[in-house]
């Protein structure tokens, strides 16, 4: 089956083929098991994806989420254009216990706001690897690059065994 035919099959599944072409394709499908199998695979994938994002919930409380929106609206500001950086604290849940998070957020905000040449610490996300978060502590001369892959990643098997 050539590629154009495969795409036609997909278009048929998606209701994008004109009626005449659809009729011809239906006839062909009856006779071609390979085409039937491919169509079934495409349909199966669609079935699997159905309802995928039902149950994905915003991980913030109603009040907290709304308060930030309301603040922006009342300020009358246009949403800031994004310079291609991740928001400041991605991946922190991997780094610190939740109890210290608020303190660290405040401390780091102060450090970042106070920077502009001054020593402190800062976070950044590298565009070349969105899975990496860089943290730089100027005082100790330490740069941490945190790779936010799950614990089953290739590098994680180096945990000592019993």
């Amino acid at each position: 089956m050539d590629y154009d035919t495969q795409l036609q099959l997909q278009a048929y599944l998606d209701g994008e083929l004109p009626e005449r072409a659809s009729r011809q394709l239906r006839v062909w499908l009856e006779e071609d098991p390979e085409a039937k199998a491919l169509l079934a695979e495409l349909e199966n994938t669609r079935t699997l994806l159905t309802h995928y994002d039902e149950g994905i919930l915003l991980p913030e409380s109603r009040e907290f989420f709304w308060s930030k929106i309301e603040r922006e609206i009342l300020a009358g500001r246009k949403p800031a254009s994004r310079p291609g950086r991740l928001s400041v604290f991605p991946g922190l849940r991997y780094l610190v216990p939740a109890g210290s998070l608020a303190a660290l957020v405040v401390a780091t905000l102060l450090a970042v706001q106070g920077s502009g040449g001054s020593k402190g610490s800062e976070y950044e996300a590298t565009l070349s690897d969105p899975g990496a978060l860089t943290y730089r502590d100027y005082a100790s001369g330490t740069t941490l690059v945190w790779l936010s892959y799950p614990a089953e990643h290739e590098l994680a098997d180096d945990e000592p065994s019993d």
Partner: peptide, 28 residues
């Protein structure tokens, strides 16, 4: 498989740390 590529200066006395999650709530 390459998981990271990075260029930077590494002056004496400084340290670069690459890290990630490991099983059982530990880290490599």
């Amino acid at each position: 498989e390459q998981v990271l590529k990075r260029s930077q200066a590494l002056p004496k006395g400084e340290i670069l740390v690459l890290a990630g999650n490991a099983p059982n709530d530990t880290a490599w």
